[in-house]
Amino acid sequence: MAISEATREQMQQLAARYPQPRSALLPMLHLVQSAEGEVTTDGIEACADVLSITPAEVKAVSTFYTMYKRKPVGKHHIGVCINTLCGLLGGDAVYDALSERLGVGHDQPTADGEFWLERIECQAACTHAPVMTVDWEFMDDVTPTSAVDIVDRLARGEQVASTRGPVIRDFRATEHTLAFPLDGLADEGNPVDAKMLAGLAVAKERGMSAPTSTQEG
């Protein structure tokens, strides 16, 4: 699909954010995914055009990073962390359950274009293992049952909230956020959960605190 003038305009805005325009290439490719649902040949050519580089150079970059897909991702991207900690603590079972539920394997879209399943690497949420993501928003501490339930609810069009983030939108919306992060959702939900406060809670419980001045120390 041809890249619209509006999207090109946004690409120019991204390029203007940096001292050297090429720095905008990663956000621009996120923007392409938000507009196209994948990194298309047209998207690559538009990036190349805006940055005055070759399409080969853009393709080289787009194929290096795993978040960029060369097939339509569909409505929701579903990630399951299968790195050692999450995987062995139950992520493997979560992935198997979702793979069975969706009928697809790693890095594949469902036939109805609703979901894309991916075995993802460490999501920097090991304290919340096993971790799943929907459109890259956190779904912490999942089980095979809860993970399948999330997918079922999404499939039914029900509202699903991230455990540490906003109500789930869709893959394209998240990709837009990655290009233009001021999406107005910073105030949604309270992402600071009990696990992030675990140490603070213990400290309060046991009356521990850090000295705020040298004298107290």
Partner: peptide
């Protein structure tokens, strides 16, 4: 240019 990464890294061209 070099496409893909790691063991899949390969030389290639743009689509068109």
């Amino acid at each position: 240019d070099l496409l893909e990464r790691g063991a899949k890294q390969q030389v290639g061209t743009a689509d068109d």
